[in-house]
Protein backbone atom coordinates (compact mmCIF):
# COMPACT_ATOMS: atom_id res chain seq x y z
CA UNK A 1 0.00 0.00 0.00
CA UNK A 2 1.30 3.47 -0.94
CA UNK A 3 2.13 5.57 2.11
CA UNK A 4 1.27 9.23 1.85
CA UNK A 5 1.83 12.61 3.33
CA UNK A 6 -0.26 15.70 2.84
CA UNK A 7 1.35 18.29 0.60
CA UNK A 8 -0.64 21.50 0.47
CA UNK A 9 -3.62 19.48 1.63
CA UNK A 10 -3.34 17.02 -1.25
CA UNK A 11 -2.06 13.42 -1.09
CA UNK A 12 1.59 12.97 -1.97
CA UNK A 13 3.46 9.62 -1.96
CA UNK A 14 5.84 9.08 0.91
CA UNK A 15 9.11 7.16 0.69
CA UNK A 16 11.84 6.36 3.17
CA UNK A 17 14.24 9.28 3.61
CA UNK A 18 11.92 11.84 1.97
CA UNK A 19 13.13 15.39 2.63
CA UNK A 20 11.77 18.82 1.83
CA UNK A 21 14.50 19.25 -0.75
CA UNK A 22 13.48 15.99 -2.43
CA UNK A 23 9.82 17.02 -2.54
CA UNK A 24 10.80 20.31 -4.13
CA UNK A 25 12.88 18.51 -6.74
CA UNK A 26 10.05 16.10 -7.59
CA UNK A 27 7.51 18.92 -7.81
CA UNK A 28 9.99 21.22 -9.60
CA UNK A 29 9.24 23.99 -7.11
CA UNK A 30 11.79 26.53 -8.29
CA UNK A 31 10.07 29.80 -7.37
CA UNK A 32 12.37 31.83 -5.10
CA UNK A 33 9.73 33.10 -2.67
CA UNK A 34 8.52 29.97 -0.89
CA UNK A 35 7.52 29.33 2.73
CA UNK A 36 7.78 25.75 4.05
CA UNK A 37 6.03 24.34 7.10
CA UNK A 38 5.92 20.77 8.40
CA UNK A 39 3.07 20.11 10.82
CA UNK A 40 2.81 23.84 11.26
CA UNK A 41 6.49 24.36 12.09
CA UNK A 42 8.43 26.73 9.84
CA UNK A 43 11.44 25.20 8.09
CA UNK A 44 14.28 27.52 7.10
CA UNK A 45 15.75 27.25 3.64
CA UNK A 46 19.10 25.97 4.87
CA UNK A 47 17.30 23.04 6.52
CA UNK A 48 15.40 21.80 3.46
CA UNK A 49 17.99 19.12 2.68
CA UNK A 50 18.12 17.71 6.19
CA UNK A 51 14.47 17.94 7.17
CA UNK A 52 13.11 14.41 6.92
CA UNK A 53 9.41 14.08 6.29
CA UNK A 54 7.61 11.25 8.04
CA UNK A 55 4.57 9.26 6.99
CA UNK A 56 1.38 11.20 7.55
CA UNK A 57 3.12 14.56 7.97
CA UNK A 58 1.33 17.70 6.88
CA UNK A 59 3.67 19.64 4.61
CA UNK A 60 2.88 23.13 3.33
CA UNK A 61 5.01 24.61 0.58
CA UNK A 62 3.48 28.00 0.07
CA UNK A 63 4.39 30.09 -2.95
CA UNK A 64 3.92 33.81 -2.57
CA UNK A 65 2.23 35.75 -5.34
CA UNK A 66 3.95 36.44 -8.63
CA UNK A 67 2.63 38.14 -11.71
CA UNK A 68 3.68 41.69 -12.66
Amino acid sequence: MVQIIKLNNRDFPWEEGLTIEKIMEIKRFTFPKIIVKVNGKLIEKEDYATTVVNKGDNVEIIHLLAGG
Binding site: N8, R10, F29, I61, I62, H63, L65, A66, G67
Partner: peptide, 14 residues
Amino acid sequence: AWLIFMDMVNNQLP
Protein backbone atom coordinates in the same frame (compact mmCIF):
# COMPACT_ATOMS: atom_id res chain seq x y z
CA ALA B 1 -5.49 39.65 -9.42
CA TRP B 2 -2.78 37.05 -9.85
CA LEU B 3 -3.92 34.07 -7.81
CA ILE B 4 -2.44 31.10 -9.66
CA PHE B 5 0.01 30.02 -6.97
CA MET B 6 -2.42 30.53 -4.10
CA ASP B 7 -5.02 28.46 -5.91
CA MET B 8 -3.28 25.92 -8.15
CA VAL B 9 -0.06 25.24 -6.22
CA ASN B 10 -0.73 26.16 -2.59
CA ASN B 11 -4.34 24.95 -2.58
CA GLN B 12 -5.18 27.83 -0.21
CA LEU B 13 -8.50 28.60 -1.87
CA PRO B 14 -10.33 25.27 -1.82
